[in-house]
Amino acid sequence: MLEKLEQLVAELGELDRQERIELLIDLARTLPPLPDRLAEFKDAAHRVPECQSPVFLFPEREQDTFILHADVPPEAPTVRGFMAMLVEGLSGAPLQEAVLVPADLIERSGLRELLGMQRVSGLHGVLRRVRDMAIRMAAEPPSV
């Protein structure tokens, strides 16, 4: 389950510091821009408050599929790269799988090592929110 995500986590985790930075920069470039219909809702309600960088999350569902849109400024390439990994790995996954996004993927991908203990908590905030949103959606019947 969540094979694409696990693949990215494993790949990041195996790299040395410099290679990891380069892969995050590459991933950051792939984060799709927010659809126009969402761009105007970049407000406090969609911002992750634990994260020092302005991270905005827009989770949606299409039937039983989890869809994730997100926005992170290019000036925060590590956080943006992390976000791109989550979007690539989770968006389009069945809701029932998205709720199982593993809590330890930040450690396994070497991001704690890269960012340091004091700063990695922002990423945990992002991850927790994504998972909680998926759980909330999975608990509701799909809208018609």
Binding site: I21, A76, P77, R119
Partner: peptide, 22 residues
């Protein structure tokens, strides 16, 4: 920087990177 990857996206020519954490 706060973000350890930012320097590698572009910096002032000739600048060294010194990370607060690493």
């Amino acid at each position: 920087d706060e973000d350890p990857a930012l320097y590698f996206l572009g910096h002032i020519p000739g600048a060294a990177e010194i990370g607060w954490h690493h």
